[in-house]
Amino acid sequence: MNSGSPEIIATLVKYAVMFGVFINVAPIMNWVERRACAYIQDRPGPNRVGPLGLFQPLADAAKFMFKEDVTPAAADKLLYLMAPVLALLPAFTTFVIVPFGPDLTVGGRTIPLVVAPVDTGVLLFLALSSLAVYSLVLAGYASNNKFSLLGGIRASAQLISYELALTLSVLAVLLPVNSFRLSDIVAWQQAHVWNVIPQILGFFVFLVASFAETNRLPFDLPEAESELIAGFHTEYSAMRFAAFFQAEYTNMAALAALGVTLFFGGWSLPGVHLTGWLGAIVGLVTLVAKIGVCMAVFVWVRWTFPRFRYDQLMRLGWKVLLPLSILNLILVAAMTLAGWL
């Protein structure tokens, strides 16, 4: 940080690029989700605003802006207003450690294409994303409403439980690489093989746990519209609701970015070794495309699986996923020791 302004400018530009990618996820996914669910359920979906209903997100955004922003009289005002902001905070900070291209040399300076090239890498991602639970819990508590409180309680237990399995599956990826840095993990996968092949078990655990961490169906118990009438955000309307909406999709995209970086080679493509600006652009496009595929899977799963019951959710987390992730960790450790990885 003390090494002068070019670094700061480079960091700002990199953050702007990633921010530009991630802020657009919510409106685009809004359209994708509604069209895809309509397709899966064999109905047309929103198709009136613009070609194929493509401008529907703009109409939605306008609607959010002009709706009345209601604060319930019995709500805990401060916490109620704080919760949506807290939801956005981790969503827009976690992606800073995801690399999106090979090192770039500009004017004799080597710039790693990751916003924050820190040693603690993945750990920072997990730490920041673990703060996301507060927004859900506080929203549920501050609304002062039974359904919301239940949603908040469910969220806190669910997120803690699945964080364990998620962290352990991430840990296994780090073993052969010997580094917390995601760019090292990408480099390792470029040199060897995509992690999804030797660690298919870990990938499975990661996938399921990330559905739970983002509160997506089949694990959307904190909101569960049919039993908790939207749970922790029952009382929220207008832009505050939009903030939760944005945070959910940004969190999904951030977890997808982590997932593709850990298991699918991140910005790299097998056999493609481009450098310079071309490499940077191809890297960014590749990463975004991979995230897009992941998001499609998120949507696909959401509209094809029924919701779990709460005890089933806990049983799955503690009695299936956690042992599986530990088994995966031991397997990977053994393979690393044997020199197979």
Binding site: T120, L123, L124, L126, A127, L128, S130, L131, V133, Y134, V137, Y141, S156, L159, I160, E163
Partner: peptide, 16 residues
């Protein structure tokens, strides 16, 4: 990072 991950992310959530 551990402080945030363990304390803020897990222990305090347990309190809540």
């Amino acid at each position: 990072a551990l402080q945030i991950l363990i304390y803020a992310g897990a222990i305090v959530v347990l309190f809540l």
